[in-house]
């Protein structure tokens, strides 16, 4: 097993720092969440396509893109509908 497999927590901690910087900015909570979800989904598409960090690569198909589009569009609606603060 590669040594870096133990370092997931470092990235988790870095997430908290960058996320709080984004939330306490002109983006506000909803903008930070929307952009964060976007970054997460874009990364996951690349991770599956090329098999990042030793996990199996998976060929992306139309169904993946449809699922991504529906869930991101729905998330944006929930975010702008007011309260929803994930």
């Amino acid at each position: 097993m590669p040594w870096w497999a133990y370092l997931g927590g470092v990235f988790g901690a870095a997430t908290v720092v960058t996320a709080s910087l984004a939330v306490n900015s002109p983006l506000a909570l909803s903008g930070a969440i929307a952009l964060g979800l976007g970054g997460q989904v874009l990364f996951s598409l690349a991770a599956d396509q090329w098999g990042f960090f030793g996990l199996p690569a998976r060929r992306l198909d139309l169904r993946d893109l449809m699922a991504v589009l529906f869930i991101l569009a729905g998330s944006v609606l929930v975010i702008i509908s007011g309260g929803a603060q994930a």
């Binding site: 990235f11 988790g12 970054g39 997460q40």
Partner: peptide, 13 residues
């Protein structure tokens, strides 16, 4: 920062 936070979540997972 916001996009990076999302990417870091993905890397961590």
């Amino acid at each position: 920062f916001a996009v990076t936070a999302g990417v870091l979540v993905g890397i961590s997972r």
